[in-house]
Structure formats: C-alpha cells, structure tokens
Design a protein around this nucleic acid. Sequence first.
RNA 1: GUGGGCGUAGCUCAGUUGGUUAGAGCGCCAGGUUGUGGUCCUGGAGGCCGGGGGUUCGAGACCCCUCGUCCACCCCA
Length: 425
Amino acid sequence: MPSFQTSPGTRDILPPQAGRWRAFSAQFADTVESAGYECIIPPMFEDLGVFLRLGDATDVVTKEMYDFEDKGGRRVALRPEHTAGICRSFAQHRPTTPWKVWYSGSNFRYEKAQAGRYRQFDQVGIEVLGSTDALLDVEVIALGWQFFQSLGLKNVVLMLNSLGDPADRAAYIEALRQYLESRSSELSEEARATLQRNPLRVLDSKRVQDKPVIIDAPTIAQFLSEDARGHFETVKAGLDAIGVQYEVNEGLVRGLDYYQRTVFEYVSTSLDSAQTAVGGGGRYDGLVEDLGGPSTPGVGFALGIDRTLLACDSENVFELGAPQMDAFIVDVVDGMTALRLSDQLRAAGFTVDRAYDGRSMKSQMKVADRSGARLAIIIGEDEAAAGNCTVRNLMTSEQQVILQAELVPHLASIVGERNPRRNTQ
RNA sequence: GUGGGCGUAGCUCAGUUGGUUAGAGCGCCAGGUUGUGGUCCUGGAGGCCGGGGGUUCGAGACCCCUCGUCCACCCCA
C-alpha cells in the first residue's frame, strides 16, 4: 500500500478518462456559446456568508460545507455549487444585463461518497442574471436539453414544476405542513424529522411507507398567484413551441432554498443507482438581492459531469476515442535525430511522439503502435548516415525512404496540412 | 450521520474444513539467430494477502478494532 491515497470522496480522473472530461466541457461550451453565454471562472472558495444564502434549512449549508478559518481569521468555505458565487460576482461587478455566463468546475460537499456522488464533484452550468422573461427560462431549459441530445443521450426526461412566488411558496409550505402533520402517524420516522426542518423535502422521500401520504398531499398548483401561474404557462407554451418534451411533476422541489417560480430537473432513466438526476436548475429571483446586490432576477442550471458520463456509459454514447498521433519517431542510433525531428515536426503543426532510453527497434515499434500513430519514422544506422529516414504506414505496413529534409511536405501529403505552431512573441 | 457488502500483484479475480516456497488472466519488460509494431510462442519482474491487536503449534482464511471502498438511507448534481 502506498503511503498516501486520495481522500475519501475524491479521486484521480486519469487518462484516458480525463480526455473525455475535457471533450465533455468543450462540447458544453460549444452548445452554450452558440447562444451567447460567456465563460466565467469564479473562485473556488468565498466568504462563508455567500453560501449561507442557499438556505439554513438545507443540508448543503448545515452539514456539508467545507468551511474553515484562514490564516487571516476570515471565515471561508469551498464552494458547494456555483450559483451563489456567480450572484456575488454580479453584485460586485455590476455587469450590463442580461448577463449570460457558463462555467465548468469542481464543487465540494462533505457527504459520504456513493454511486455518482463525491465530495469533490464537477459540474457545468449556465446562469442568466437580469431578466424575468419566461421565454428565457425556456431558452435555459432547452440549452440543457440540447446538450444532452448532442451527447447522444436518449433516455433523459425533463421534469418541470413551479414553486410560485415567495408568498405562494410560503402559503403552500404552511398548508403542506398542516396536511403532513395531520397524517404524521403514517409517515416514517425520518420523514417526520424532515417535516420539522423543511416540509417540502418530505415530497422527495423515497420510502414506500411515505408514498401514500405524499400522493394525497396538496399540490403547489393550487397556490400559485396569477403572475406565477402566467409565467409557468408561458414556459410550458415555449417548450411546446420548440418541441422540448417535459413532464410536470408537482412533487419536484429542489434542494436549495433560493428557487422560486420555475424549477426543473433532467433525470436519466438508464441509471440504476439512486442518483438519477443528471442536472437541475430553476429561477432564483431573490438571490442577488440577498447577497447585497440590486434586486435582480436570475435563472440557470447545473449538470453533474460524473452522473452525465455515467448515463452516457449506460447508453453507450459519447465514448472514448482511441489515441491518435500523426507520427511516432523510432531512433535506434542515439536519439538525437528523434529529438531534432520531433522538435521540427511539432513546430510545423504535427502531433509527434517518440521513444526514449535507446530501446530496441522492436520495443520502440511496439510503443509506436500503442501510441495510435499513423506513421512510424524510423532512423537506423543507415538512415542516420545518409540523412534520410524510413516512413512506415502503420495501417498498411507500406514504407518508403525519404530525405529527412523532405519530411514536412511528405507528412502533409499523407496526414494533411497542419497549421504551424509559432512562437508569437 | 445510520445500516449492509467488500478489501489478495498495476487491473479483474481464484485461493478447499486455518497447515510447508500465495496463483491465473490481462497489462508491463525481455527474447524468438542479430533493422520493424498490431497475431503467436517462451521467459521475467511485480504481493510483509489494507493496517493494528488477538485466538492457535501454525492465519490470506477465525475474532476484535481501525482505515479504505462499494451500495442503500439521508441529501443532492
């Protein structure tokens, strides 16, 4: 056993899996940048107060926060999600609205690790600040949807609900509390405890014992104000108009307290684990103000990278490609030619790898094969003396001898033209 | 935080009722008559059997503790 291992709930994303993560983020960026969202990179830790706004009844705040005092005596916390920090950023810099941003990065929550759940986990997401337009909710929801489609996922369903305006929500919570208390003897012990803290969350219970009580519970729909109802209707009409299928789920409540009006969740139906929500979001019109900024509406979502890739695995989509290289240099003389040629070819824009430690030709050829290179460039004693090299096509096994000086145009004729990597100084 | 399963080579796993030098496949390295990979053959390296106590003449196997991991609850992405 090595002396050190990754901390619980964290892990190394090794190659080649890490390459898949990179491709994932790149594809997400491509999707949302097509809609005018720009990349934002907020800090990984902030004043603890920023995150307390997620809600003092939430587990995220009460027991999962990685908070500590820094050497200057400041109370700070590793971010458990991105939204609060982005709202803090908005309040601090006051950009013009609508401010449309996307992000990709790690979050931290002190939980016990499980399938699709880690202490350090990565999300991509978008946020828009400064507009109450219900059709913006539609755009946000549709972009997430479109991204799942672009990955090739088929078994993702969109759940939709409205939590109403703060007053509606409060009235509903009160009605729900009264109802649940009236039937508390039928609830599980755990659900009764949840009821004391946050009645909405009881609706999320997975226990069979609680199901009958939940089914008969009052629904939020009856409590929506005229405005909130209109907003919700517009969102649904917008989704219908662009053909995004959804399912209204009145039991859908989200884990963070700042949501109001539209909430939604993307659920994978091809995951067997308990964690099937691959993404979720909603509207949080009061959050910026809570953080001391001007009253500013906001809407956004976050997608879990791990869980989404898990869903991709189970649907056999967005798979890893085999490694690829243009050329691999085999030098059995002294390695100097490999050094010189790899340097030249890389500068000319090709992807080139080589072997080290002066190993046998057979050994170097094996590494060339493993590298996924299309061509092997072989330098033996003969080639070194004559200033040429043998170029072997590793797919067809055809090979020919050419002058080293002609390597760049020769490679271009086989693998295609490349843009030179120039030093721009 | 609560409950359950599991921890043996880099990876996936075998290891009979506790009994001598702990195995396989894959991967890795080296060879297969001297310049060439992907197939095949041969050989090699690599494990204080997660860690610590205990029971025993003897423990990878049994007991206790601990750490890690997986799964579920909880919660969430």
